[in-house]
Design a protein around this nucleic acid. Sequence first.
DNA 1: CGCCGAGTTGAACTGAATCAAGAAACGTGG
DNA 2: CCACGTTTCTTGATTCAGTTCAACTCGGCG
Lengths: 193, 193
Amino acid sequence: MNKDQIIQSIVENYHELPFECVNDLHLNSEVLNLEKGIQIVREGAYADKVYYVAEGTARAFYLKDGKDISDWFAFEHDFICSINSYFLNIPSPHYIETIEASTLLAINRTQVNLLSDRYLAFDRLGKVIVTNTMLRLQQRIVAMQFETAKQTYENLLSIRPDITQRIPLMHIASYLGITLETLSRIRSPKYRI
Amino acid sequence: MNKDQIIQSIVENYHELPFECVNDLHLNSEVLNLEKGIQIVREGAYADKVYYVAEGTARAFYLKDGKDISDWFAFEHDFICSINSYFLNIPSPHYIETIEASTLLAINRTQVNLLSDRYLAFDRLGKVIVTNTMLRLQQRIVAMQFETAKQTYENLLSIRPDITQRIPLMHIASYLGITLETLSRIRSPKYRI
DNA sequence: CGCCGAGTTGAACTGAATCAAGAAACGTGG
DNA sequence: CCACGTTTCTTGATTCAGTTCAACTCGGCG
């Protein structure tokens, strides 16, 4: 997938952009073709880029007492960034890495702000993305708040039926806030309640 | 607190607004002086207003299998709305009610959109609020994901030390995803681990 | 062919839920 | 300002979902 196609897919999936804005975005963004398992953000770095996943999968995770805890998965047409670092301009608590071979579009915060000032439509695009993210986080809190592990898992499966084929179970488990063993049991046909 | 003062406090706490925008906002918003325990949004309603809490406290909650689960607390200078209903234009899964006697400023979505189109600064204000909300939700997920009940509680206390004086423990418990009894034990001095 | 990471299964343990009973705190009306 | 009922909070005993630790299986891949 080339840069034009990627930008086109952002427009299709999120918000219309005028011709000059698309050109401008073209000049101010970068395509990354990455293998599976490549780290694009490391803990402690100032992560001032957003990534649009054109193809593949990426995840954000952090280490809590040495344990790897997944915090966000991004599939095709999703955005991913270290949200604390990007928005608060602090060292990233997160790592971000590819889970499959992926094509990403990287855009710098400075460029995002420039484009937002220059094009109203781009500003709106940003608003849409942030709003969607907020709603997705809200859903996740509701899912975690008072459900059993099994309900939480099935809830995730209904939103993303292909997730178990694309993301290792250990990452799904930590994302759900349960252990790998519990997830394994939940998935087993002989599991009751 | 009168409408001018309330709008002034929004400007001070969030984003500068030009003079005409303030006037326009003045014309398109409504001050609510409410007793404690008044419901301003009911489940099933189309809740197309945002509320700015000038004084007092409000909370959003939903009923899960008949149980009251708090989802969001808003203190002075916080915004509150039924985020699913407001942004997705669906019937509200949430109730919103005052916890203390409160002064709120209510603004309609249509007005918000109009003002956002008319004044760039107002659009930016909206972006700031949504971004802050997103970050706050993110923090909460991290807090819930792999902490014990006690850690989650202390985490909340460090952010909002006065919360136990202002919000009944049962609401704090459901917000944290634990039972009232567990919260009570956690708070007890003889509680270990 | 044997190693290695990913996933499964089992047994013992534990943090938190549930059920149940009281104790405080609060508000309202006499 | 006190009595009474309601709501909020505490404490105890028991149960259970999920963790932990450990051993084992499976599928790739050098």
